[in-house]
């Protein structure tokens, strides 16, 4: 085995990372728009956090610390991939990252999203599933379902707007 339990407080890492990984994932997706790249970075970030976990000071904001690591991983990755990827500049990433504590990937937000997804018409829900689950292109999905790509783009835009409003409504109601 690679590390002793005494040397590495593995259980603490697991708890913290599992609790916040969705937020870290959302943080990364702000800057890295390719699904597979974002997944790679989430995994890579997790490993870096694991290796550096002995530097984490218990009681401090784990997510803020993890985001810093994720940001460096993102910048490092995009620097290497900038010639082959359409991506933000370092300046934009720094700007967005500085305000990233406003990103809400909390349980309540996630629960609201799930409920709002359930509230969609079945055809809309199926379209979202196809587009997000397969990780193929919109054009591929359009061909599969016999629609134009523009029509699918338009539908997705409408569905996302409906979901944004629904999530706002549910979170507001829950806070009352």
């Amino acid at each position: 085995m690679t590390k002793s339990t005494e040397a590495m407080p593995q259980a603490g890492f697991v708890e913290a990372f599992l609790r916040h990984q969705r937020s870290i994932h959302a943080f990364i997706l702000q800057f890295v728009h390719d699904y597979n790249d974002a997944e790679d970075l989430l995994q890579r970030t997790g490993l870096v956090i694991w290796r550096k976990f002995d530097q984490y000071e218990p009681g401090t904001d784990f997510l803020a610390w993890a985001r810093q690591i994720a940001k460096f991983e993102v910048l490092s990755y995009l620097k290497a991939a900038s010639r082959s990827r359409v991506c933000f500049s370092t300046e934009t990433i720094e700007l967005l990252a500085d305000e990233s504590d406003e990103v809400d990937a909390s349980e309540s937000h996630h629960d609201a999203l799930r409920l709002c997804l359930e509230g969609l018409r079945s055809t809309d829900r199926e379209l979202v599933r196809r587009c997000y689950e397969a990780h193929g292109t919109i054009q591929q999905v359009a061909i599969e379902i016999g629609r134009s790509a523009d029509g699918v783009y338009h539908s997705l835009h409408r569905i996302r707007q409906a979901l944004l409003r629904c999530i706002d409504r549910r979170i507001t109601e829950a806070a009352r």
């Binding site: 974002a38 990103v103 937000h109 996630h110 996302r160 944004l164 999530i167």
Partner: peptide, 27 residues
């Protein structure tokens, strides 16, 4: 995004939704 904090806020909200949908349908 550079010029408008509201634009950044809206961008984050959409990306947060996008990330949530990715997560729900994550393979």
């Amino acid at each position: 995004l550079h010029d408008d904090p509201d634009a950044r806020r809206y961008y984050r909200r959409v990306m947060e939704l996008h990330a949530g949908l990715r997560w729900v349908h994550r393979v």
